[in-house]
């Protein structure tokens, strides 16, 4: 494929129109988008999390979210299988292993800030933006409330203010985008007592994660969750137990949201361009057929008329001939009579 593409570009170049195509070739192939350089992320080392919920607490205060139903010191809610809601950008869940001797595992859930966000791809008003810093931000001022972003999100993160009659918003973690903008680190990371959360450039976090796996192969599963899942996420995860055992889907695949839909989108202009041609063609053929049928019919009628005419002429001719013969005979007879009389 590479060769044919290079050839193709070569032909274009030979035709001397490559300048008018515009974009450099580097930006025209799907596989070559590598995300914003120096984009930030967070590494969540699940093996270090103790379920203290201080990240939830800090998140709630910094983002001025509503009072929680129970205090953040309440450890009993950890056992419930919670998800992000309109009141909580992030939650920590506890997972008890089937093997009773092993310690429970705690996992923090929040928006993963995909490199190619499905929510942004799905939004028809561009309410979501993947910022160069890493966060995926949401703008309620343009949101229509179709909730297609929630359908699209493979991690079930966005929540919706269903009880708000006039100004319902989609609610999700912002990765503390304003704080990152100001050079600070996200609220949850800043308060984590066990360094289960590490903030930094995503590419650096990836090397840290790999190094931890290399140094402690017994402690970790050999996989950095988020490196490739759904095209890669800004949040990365390390775990000591298989990810599917702690509620993280391993069947998402590595195709991003935009990749999943770009094929269908690319058919649209082809239909717009070619359907009218095809349909007009069919219409033309239909009309031609009708016209031909009409002409054929006309022709048949004319032929019938002509045939009819022809026959009658013959008849008349025959009649005339007959009469002529009759007259001739009569004259001959008369002549004979005459001759007889003279003799």
């Amino acid at each position: 494929m590479g060769i044919s593409r290079r050839k193709f570009l070569g032909w274009i170049g030979a035709a001397g129109i490559s300048a008018s195509i515009g974009k450099p070739a580097g930006a025209s192939s799907i596989s070559q988008f590598s995300g914003f350089p120096d984009s930030k992320g967070v590494l969540h080392d699940i093996t270090r999390c103790v379920g203290c919920r201080s990240c939830e607490d800090s998140c709630n205060k910094i983002n001025e979210l509503p009072e929680p139903d129970t205090l953040f010191s309440d450890q009993t809610v950890l056992a419930k299988n919670r998800r992000t809601t309109t009141k909580a950008f992030t939650v920590v869940n506890q997972y008890i292993s089937k093997n009773a001797s092993e310690k429970p595992v705690f996992r923090k859930i929040q928006c993963n800030h995909c490199l190619e966000p499905a929510c942004a791809s799905a939004c028809f008003v561009r309410a979501f933006t993947k910022t160069p810093n890493g966060p995926v931000t949401y703008d309620p001022d343009v949101c229509v409330g179709c909730r297609y972003c929630m359908i699209a999100c493979p991690f079930d993160i966005p929540a919706y203010e269903y009880d708000e009659p006039l100004t319902p918003r989609v609610v999700k973690c912002t990765m503390c985008a304003p704080r990152i903008e100001a050079g600070e680190i996200p609220g949850c990371v800043s308060v984590c007592p066990t360094e289960a959360l590490t903030f930094g450039k995503r590419k650096n976090l990836l090397s840290i994660a790999r190094e931890r796996i290399r140094n402690n192969p017994d402690r970790y599963i050999d996989h950095v969750y988020g490196e490739y899942e759904m095209g890669g996420t800004s949040w990365l995860y390390l775990s000591g137990v298989p990810f599917h055992e702690i509620g993280m889907r391993e069947d998402l695949g590595i195709k991003s949201g935009p990749e999943l839909t770009s094929g269908a989108l690319s058919i649209v202009p082809m239909i717009v361009g070619l359907w009218p041609v095809l349909l007009t063609g069919i219409y033309g053929m239909t009309k031609r057929k009708e016209k031909n049928a009409f002409i054929e019919q006309e022709g048949a009628v004319a032929a019938a008329v002509e045939r009819a005419n022809h026959e009658s002429i013959k008849k008349i001719a025959a009649a005339i001939e007959k009469e002529r013969l009759g007259k001739k005979k009569a004259m001959e007879a008369a002549e004979k009579e005459k001759e007889k009389g003279i003799k």
Partner: peptide, 19 residues
């Protein structure tokens, strides 16, 4: 959620990547 913004995709948004 906010039906009065039904025309936003064509006025404000142009989120052309969305089906």
């Amino acid at each position: 959620g906010r039906p009065w913004r039904l025309a936003y995709p064509f006025i404000v948004g142009w989120g052309t990547t969305s089906l």
